[in-house]
Computed example of a mutant assay.
Amino acid sequence: MADVEAKITFLTTEEGGRNFPVYSGYRPAHLVKEDYLTTGTHHYYNKEKVELGETVLGTITFITPEAYPNTLWVGKRITIQEASHIVGYAEITKIFNETLLKKI
C-alpha cells in the first residue's frame, strides 16, 4: 500500500535531470528529512511513462517508513534523487500512512 500521494516533477536534462524518461515502478531515493535519504517506489496515475520536464500525480511507497516517523505533511516538497544527484521533486498532496504524518 502506498504511503503518500504526490505531485511529481522530473527535471529536464538541461536542468540537470536524467537523460531518459521514467516508468511506473521507478525506485529512486527521496530526501524525506534533512539527514535521511530513503528509497520509494513510484506509481503514476493513468500513465506508464513520464517524460522529463513533466509533472504527474502518483503515489510513493517508501521502504521502512517507521524509521522516519512524523516527517511529512501535505505541501512538503522532497527531492527525488539518484544517489546524490537530484532528478526531480515530489510535493506531498495526501498522506495515507499515519506514521509519517507530522502533527503541526
Rank of each mutant, 00 (worst) to 15 (best):
M1D: 14
A2G: 08
A2D: 13
D3E: 07
V4I: 15
E5P: 10
A6H: 07
A6T: 08
K7Q: 08
K7I: 00
K7L: 04
I8F: 02
L11W: 07
T12F: 13
T12E: 07
T13M: 10
T13V: 10
E15S: 13
E15R: 12
G16D: 13
G17T: 14
R18M: 15
F20H: 15
F20N: 15
F20E: 15
F20W: 14
P21G: 15
P21A: 15
G25Y: 01
G25Q: 01
G25N: 01
G25C: 02
Y26L: 11
Y26Q: 09
Y26T: 09
R27F: 05
R27G: 04
P28W: 06
A29W: 07
H30R: 06
L31E: 13
V32R: 04
V32C: 09
K33Y: 13
K33N: 08
D35Y: 00
D35C: 00
D35R: 00
Y36I: 01
L37Q: 04
L37I: 05
T38G: 00
T39W: 01
T39Q: 05
G40M: 03
G40E: 02
G40T: 03
T41C: 10
T41A: 11
T41I: 13
H42V: 12
H42L: 14
H42A: 11
H43Q: 14
H43G: 07
H43W: 12
Y44D: 11
Y44S: 12
Y45N: 12
Y45E: 11
N46L: 05
N46I: 02
N46S: 09
N46C: 02
K47W: 07
K47T: 10
K49R: 14
K49T: 11
K49M: 14
K49N: 06
V50S: 03
E51P: 04
L52R: 00
G53S: 02
G53N: 00
E54V: 03
T55A: 01
V56P: 01
V56I: 08
V56Y: 00
G58A: 04
G58S: 03
G58W: 06
G58T: 03
G58K: 01
T59M: 02
I60T: 05
T61Q: 13
T61W: 05
F62V: 01
T64L: 12
P65A: 05
P65C: 05
E66Y: 10
E66I: 10
E66Q: 10
A67F: 08
A67I: 09
A67D: 13
Y68L: 07
P69I: 07
P69T: 06
N70C: 10
L72P: 07
W73P: 02
V74N: 10
K76Q: 12
K76S: 11
I78F: 10
I78T: 10
I78A: 06
I78C: 06
T79Q: 08
I80K: 03
Q81G: 07
A83L: 15
H85D: 06
I86N: 05
I86L: 03
I86W: 01
V87D: 04
V87Y: 09
G88S: 04
G88K: 03
G88V: 06
Y89G: 10
Y89M: 14
Y89I: 15
A90L: 07
E91D: 14
I92Q: 06
T93N: 08
T93F: 12
K94I: 05
K94Q: 11
I95M: 00
F96Y: 14
N97M: 06
N97A: 09
E98R: 13
E98I: 11
T99F: 06
T99Y: 05
L100F: 06
L101F: 12
L101H: 09
L101A: 14
K102M: 12
I104P: 09
I104M: 07
